[in-house]
């Protein structure tokens, strides 16, 4: 039973991170209908920025709290800047091109960013400083759920609530919803669609950056390649929940996290990634609209 609860929590933690990244995929897809293949790389860049900033600050002797706040901020700022730039450089010129062109461009961007970080930093795994301390009040539960699991769950929940509020109640959120329903109509009623798209990329990238920071400090090491697998898994989560749907991304993330955790816990850990990929293939084949998504109707 204890093992079960341990797996449950580790699955929830994973799922929460997948959900954070999946939100970026789903928001972008909802608005411009593009699989933002480079999103995993944005997450990786967020983790790297956090790694660099926190290492520098800890060498300079800053207190832990300041390091956490500054590293988180830097990760969010730079990831958003990368997300914004990638959109402007690689996707915006292709907005009216055939559907596969922006996808190929996105794949190119993803390879480019991976190798950019590889060349600028190093290909080795880097030890990520432990930013989340062990809390005293977690002491009695520490054998089932660690402090960092708890922090991840709380932070991701807060982020998701924040995102929901942003989309439901703010002006830009309303504009996002309008744009995702009908881009042309949104333009006609005076919404600056370009700005909405940029905002979507910025918000999605910031979420991914927070995910990157949390998972890097949870696992304790990073390298340039972490974005690829995480990106595909988060994409799986987004598709599972129904791409374009925000609650769907969260649901998909949690289901994927739990599936992986139980499958590796009870079946075999060798095939950890195979489970995720198989799940992705199966959903796309049998229910491409996902759990909460709307089926796309093709009109002639």
């Amino acid at each position: 039973m204890e093992y079960f609860i341990e797996l449950l929590f580790s699955g929830l933690t994973r799922g929460a991170i997948y959900a954070l990244i999946a939100l970026g995929y789903t928001m972008v897809y909802g608005i411009i209908g593009l699989i933002n293949f480079a999103h995993g790389e944005i997450y990786m860049i967020g983790a790297f920025t956090a790694f660099i900033v926190s290492t520098v600050l800890s060498i300079l002797g800053f207190p832990l709290l300041a390091i956490i706040v500054l590293a988180g901020l830097a990760a969010a700022v730079w990831s958003s800047a990368y997300g914004y730039t990638v959109e402007k450089l690689a996707y915006k010129p292709l907005r009216h091109a055939p559907r596969l062109s922006p996808l190929i461009s996105a794949i190119g961007m993803s390879i480019f960013l991976q190798n950019y970080v590889l060349l600028a930093q190093t290909s080795d795994f880097q030890p990520f400083p432990e930013l989340i301390p062990e809390f005293d009040f977690m002491e009695p539960f520490v054998h089932i759920v660690g402090s960092s699991d708890m922090v991840i769950l709380v932070v991701t929940t807060l982020m998701m609530v924040g995102l929901t509020l942003l989309i439901k109640f703010t002006r830009i959120g309303k504009a996002m919803r309008a744009t995702s329903q009908d881009r042309k109509m949104a333009m006609l009623v005076g919404i600056n669609v370009d700005r909405v798209i940029s905002a979507t990329f910025i918000v999605g990238s910031a979420l991914a950056a927070v995910g990157g920071l949390l998972i890097a400090s949870h696992i304790g090491q990073i390298n340039f390649f972490i974005g690829f697998i995480a990106g595909i898994k988060a994409f799986t989560a987004a598709v599972l929940g129904g791409i374009g749907s925000i609650p769907g991304a969260v649901l998909g993330g949690v289901i994927l996290g739990l599936t992986e955790s139980f499958a590796t816990g009870y079946v075999s850990s060798d095939y950890e990634d195979v489970f995720a990929f198989s799940l992705l293939v199966l959903i796309l084949i049998f229910k491409p609209s996902g759990l909460l998504g709307k089926a796309e109707i093709q009109k002639v």
């Binding site: 450089l89 690689a90 190929i104 461009s105 794949i107 190119g108 961007m109 993803s110 390879i111 480019f112 960013l113 991976q114 190798n115 950019y116 060349l119």
Partner: peptide, 8 residues
């Protein structure tokens, strides 16, 4: 790096 850039 170049291969990625070429695609874009």
């Amino acid at each position: 790096l170049a291969f990625g850039a070429i695609l874009v």
